[in-house]
């Protein structure tokens, strides 16, 4: 099978990379071997779900497993869902002030022993209310215009960190 010089070889390798890259473009290289489990949800009263659906599709295309709920989940419902689904990240979409009760969600998560779950909020959160959320433990806030990469990267990082912490814990609480 000879006849290949180094140039051919390196060409073949780079071709290989290119094709694989094309096939894997949508996979967005999850940094871990198993998908991150993410809960995408809406709590409170608002029903606009265009954003949460798009985020769910982004994360699916990034190779993650997204447990998706319709709007209007109760806080206690989200806590139990997070528990049963063993998610690493919870993404709350808020377009109409529902972020005001996200601190309550974080408190109830902690009470259920789920304080290691990373919580991110996406949507419309006025600057003046960012601190209220980050003080309560929200990991990231994504405003309108956040890019796919920004969101996927953050979920990758936060999810990997949660997984890392959990793998070091003997038995979950």
């Amino acid at each position: 099978m000879g006849g290949l010089d180094d140039a051919d070889r390196s060409h073949a390798y780079s071709e290989c990379e290119r094709v694989l890259a094309r096939i894997l473009t949508k996979r967005k290289a999850a940094p871990v071997d198993t998908p991150i489990r993410v809960l995408i949800t809406k709590i409170g009263l608002d029903g606009h779900d265009r954003g949460s659906r798009i985020i769910a599709a982004y994360l699916r295309d990034a190779g993650h497993e997204v447990v998706y709920t319709p709007p209007w989940q109760t806080i206690s419902g989200v806590v139990r869902l997070a528990l049963q689904e063993d998610v690493e990240v919870i993404g709350v979409s808020s377009l109409a002030t529902d972020h005001l009760i996200v601190p309550d969600l974080l408190r109830e998560l902690a009470e259920a022993g789920l304080d290691d779950v990373a919580v991110v909020v996406g949507g419309i959160v006025p600057d003046s209310e960012h601190a209220m959320l980050t003080d309560a433990g929200v990991g990231r806030i994504f405003g309108p215009g956040s890019s796919r990469d920004e969101i996927v990267d953050a979920v990758n990082q936060l999810g990997a960190a949660v997984r890392d912490r959990r793998s070091r814990a003997e038995v979950p609480a």
């Binding site: 996979r27 967005k28 699916r60 295309d61 990034a62 190779g63 998706y68 709920t69 419902g77």
Partner: peptide
């Protein structure tokens, strides 16, 4: 089913199973 392209998935069936969450 998972996405054949990415291996990821959107899992939404449970929300159609009614109010049993609590």
């Amino acid at each position: 089913p998972s996405s054949p392209l990415s291996g990821g998935a959107v899992l939404g069936d449970r929300t159609r199973m009614g109010e049993h969450t609590l």
